[in-house]
Design a protein around this nucleic acid. Structure first.
Lengths: 150, 150
DNA sequence: ATAAATAAAGACAAGTATATCCTTTTATCT
DNA sequence: AGATAAAAGGATATACTTGTCTTTATTTAT
């Protein structure tokens, strides 16, 4: 469904939304441990999230780390996918046909149409903040463990 | 969404269902050209479809090639995905969490639940034959061209 | 029986995604 | 200013996917 990059990006962003703030920035080691992802690889992904698309904010140096602005919290989940170049799931044809469209549909087009719309809505209407709130209610963000709300 | 392997597998199977039969077996070169896929790679995928899971039938030698039995035509699209090991799309968690379940859901679980059900239904209720029939109605199976029904 | 056609199988090459490590830059604190 | 902590950036390694080529096995036709 999604690449590892996208999965880590989403998990990291949700975790940061839940546990971080401007005056409690989270380090990459904490994040990677919390979301059960490889640290160095996750660091690379954070660069995509901070640089290309301004989803996550960061500062270097002592007491530095990652956090989300209030504006960022309101971003749709899709913004995270776009940052890691993984929004094909809501843009591409199921059969991978470049020419597939409403006027020239592929054989699966009709059965997939409404699903695609719903996927799109899920990723566009759901905000990062709302996912973090779900997580706060005891939803998983990492394998085998729940993130405990402080 | 799906891997290249899965896309080629689906396109090839649909094409074979549409144009092939026991007494009109299709060669790998025809198939690959028709569905606009790399020939040798497609040949490998055909091996998965014929060997592991019995979706496609084949015979070697002169007048050999690929075709579908009547039973195979009734198989769900999911059978093709399984043959190429790509059914994670209907089995896995969106965030890639192994522990995600109804009792221990991930933050996206609720929004994704019904979509997942629909994806599952699409792949399980749609048969290979019905996709071929769609194609016969002028739907794309290859880039830039329509498959013309004989 | 032999030749020819075709898929199957195996070996390899190229490309992309994933993962790790090392160095550099930037910010903070003393 | 200097030391330190943290992310950013670059280089490399590993694994997996995708793609190609060659050889082998099998079937059919002559």
């Amino acid at each position: 469904m999604l690449s590892k990059s996208a999965e880590y990006a989403l998990r990291a962003t949700i975790y940061i939304a839940l546990k971080g703030s401007v005056d409690n920035k989270l380090g990459i080691d904490e994040i990677a441990t919390a979301i059960d992802s490889p640290q160095y690889f996750t660091a690379k992904i954070m660069q995509l999230l901070t640089k290309n698309n301004r989803v996550v904010s960061s500062v270097r140096g002592p007491n530095g780390g990652f956090y989300l602005t209030d504006a960022a919290r309101k971003l749709p989940v899709r913004a995270v996918l776009e940052a890691v170049g993984e929004d094909g799931i809501i843009t591409k044809c199921v059969l991978g046909l470049k020419e597939c469209s409403e006027s020239r549909p592929c054989p699966m087009h009709e059965q997939y149409r409404s699903i695609k719309v719903q996927l799109k809505q899920m990723f566009e209407k759901t905000t990062i903040q709302s996912l973090a709130e779900e997580t706060g209610k005891g939803k998983l963000v990492i394998n085998n463990r729940l993130v405990k709300k402080k």
